[in-house]
Design a protein around this nucleic acid. Sequence first.
RNA 1: GGUGGAGUGGCCGAGAGGCGAGGCAAGGGACUGCAAAUCCCUCUACACGGGUUCAAAUCCCGUCUCCACCUCCA
Length: 464
Amino acid sequence: MNLRLYDTAARSVRDFEPLQPGRASIYLCGATVQAPPHVGHIRSGLAFDILRRWLQASGYDVTFVRNVTDIDDKILQRGTDEGIPFWQVAMRNERAFTWAYDQLGCLPPTYEPRATGHVPEMVELMQRLIDAGHAYPADGDVYFDVRSLPEYGALSGQRLDDMQPAADSDAQIKRDPRDFALWKSAKPGEPQWHTPWGPGRPGWHLECSAMASRYLGPAFDIHGGGMDLLFPHHENEIAQSKAAGDSFAQYWMHNAWVTTSGEKMSKSLGNSLLVSEVVQRVRPVELRYYLGSAHYRSMLEFSDEAMSEAAAGYRRIEGFVRRAEESLGMPESVPVPDAFAAAMNDDLGVPQALAVVHDTVRVGNAALAADELVGAREARDEVVAMLDVLGLNPYAPPWAAQSDDGAARRALGPLVDVVLAQRAAARDRKDFAVADALRDGLAASGIVVEDTPAGPRWSLAEEI
RNA sequence: GGUGGAGUGGCCGAGAGGCGAGGCAAGGGACUGCAAAUCCCUCUACACGGGUUCAAAUCCCGUCUCCACCUCCA
């Protein structure tokens, strides 16, 4: 079974057929770096990280571009408010995004272009659009003429005449109120670049068209982003690029948002949960598991309770892998089970894929309990292979480094061994009160002791 | 007004005509000095009203509720 993906433009699931066999090119709309990221932003990065990993695991050579839009009205406003250059605001928030992507184990993009670094490409694109009669300069602005493109609105399924007229003050200088700005003339004090139409700065949509074609060419495979970018951002991107003669994206994918109390998480609603805050309450790998556990096109209602449940689910998987390592050593690379591959090939069916993981964990646990090492090894290696596709492999970066409390374990080990020896002596003489007190004492220090047929095992508690 | 999405058991969350995904929680059992972990078993579903069908959570008609987008948004 081949990979099938839901294409927003076709409103249906389609077989994925790359432009070049064995290669896949993806452009993901990244952050407009106005503020630090909340979990909704990172869900988008995560959903497409899983797509990318699955394509790579399926043998594709993936080129993954995720842009940074480092100039827009809010960034400029914030710079003004704080009395600092806009680029300082942008850089600060870009670092916060990078940190969050890294925390959640999202692979770095192949290229990560910034809007302000691609003004020449934007100017060239605008010139092509003007020459083709799809854009026009007006008072130092440059607008896209939506009426010049009959298919405008097709991606989002809207007809121009049904749209609410924009409450836009510059309506006088536009040919149609729904024409959108490719380029904005510089107001006093604003940053500016020189163009044939006067000094100004980029509009919101132009940068993605310019950068996508710069790094992926006039035609590429997949364009991704949040559902809320469908209109206007992606509609305008497709309009710019198609009007300029590019074939642009062959597939459009959109992830659903994260909600709290039934409402979309949003900076403007003030109900957003910063990634930096959430990872104080739960390990980053557990947050990744939680955000990835719902299908990418389903809304995810965020709650601490649901996140804790998800964390418990991940620890069950992780516990199996760690316990298996004690008797089996490190895992070997094996193919993922067919059921897992089938789930992933069906428009990234991570929920069903996770069901396969859990089923395999149960089989593996039973094999371990029965001392059937062959079966346990098979299950363990498959589980690790599946976790790897999902970016949850505890042996892979960044989790390996984070969960390897090497220094702490080396320092604590001899001390814990002393206490465990005392406890063993107490148990031998049936003095269970003392034995339990010793175990409780360790537990109070965050050291969990479990008895196994091979003797006690200790670990550092994950609960914070 | 236009467009799109959602309503599933105590909770999260899949599925899209027939054999009840999975997880978390709960109860029972096995194991254990006790616990933990693990395994086995068990319970509770498809918003509402009609219809089609041998068979509907799934298809059709209608209704209700909720959410999102329509030039700030992942």
